[in-house]
Design a protein around this nucleic acid. Sequence first.
DNA 1: ATCTCATATTAGATATAATCTAAATGTTTC
DNA 2: GAAACATTTAGATTATATCTAATATGAGAT
Lengths: 150, 150
Amino acid sequence: MDPESIRQSLEGSGLRCTPQRYGVMAFLMEHAGHPTAAEIFEAVNRLDPRSTRATIYNNLRDLVQAGLVREVAVEGRSARFDAKGMRHHHFVCDRCGSIEDVEWYEVPRPAAGSLGKRVLRECELIVRGLCTRCAPRGTLSAKRRRRVDT
Amino acid sequence: MDPESIRQSLEGSGLRCTPQRYGVMAFLMEHAGHPTAAEIFEAVNRLDPRSTRATIYNNLRDLVQAGLVREVAVEGRSARFDAKGMRHHHFVCDRCGSIEDVEWYEVPRPAAGSLGKRVLRECELIVRGLCTRCAPRGTLSAKRRRRVDT
DNA sequence: ATCTCATATTAGATATAATCTAAATGTTTC
DNA sequence: GAAACATTTAGATTATATCTAATATGAGAT
């Protein structure tokens, strides 16, 4: 990923290109696996410059607000983050919570009438199921399902 | 909402119809506003029988697992819960995090090829924007946006 | 009706995720 | 280089959810 283009997209969005912020953005662009904040924290801190947890969260929030990064909430798990590159939908694994991209295709929007006076901004599709790592093993039946490492 | 039919849907799913569990289920069926666990806890405990937080969470988990209730995760906010009645999509307010139902309509599923060996279970649409309470006031621009009461 | 036992509930502790605070540091503007 | 502003930091704090181990209870069997 070209460092200069990262710098430009940050500054183009009114964000200063600090080493820490650059690190978060660059990591997200190089790792499309939808990491959690904790994973980003760990990965970034194996390199330089190191960041504190608060800085990671601050920068993720700024990047999301600037529209450069998308945050995806998953039931019962930590949020995951995703550099907005090509448009795509999301596949969420019901078992391990991992997120993968699904090739983009147009989805019809709800009729204006059914929305009333609400303002529609975005329309996103979440596909749920079992990822390839989880599928062969099928569904867990244990009542209190334990988290699974991603 | 007919008490007997609630009892039956619980038992039909292999869940004992305890007063606490019944209370959670009945509350969700009577309040389609997608309450959070905390809201359910509060509401249920204004009546009898009272439940502890753990019981509310246990029952919500059991109900979700039994397929009677849906959990909806929202970025940066607590999970919300929804008795599965008629099929519908969800509208999430970007500003206050509230969830409203959007009339159901069929959405095309991703091509099998693009999913690879993943198992598709469900396909849900999330519509984002501003709810009627938030829309007139427009988008907040404050950098550190505060939570808003729902 | 009562016995039995897996299931459910409880209080409180604990874990996890995310945010806040206040001070220090870095950057830009004049 | 001083003022104004933005960012980072360490650590405390909050919010959300889960766990633990003891106790209670519902529902089928007797």
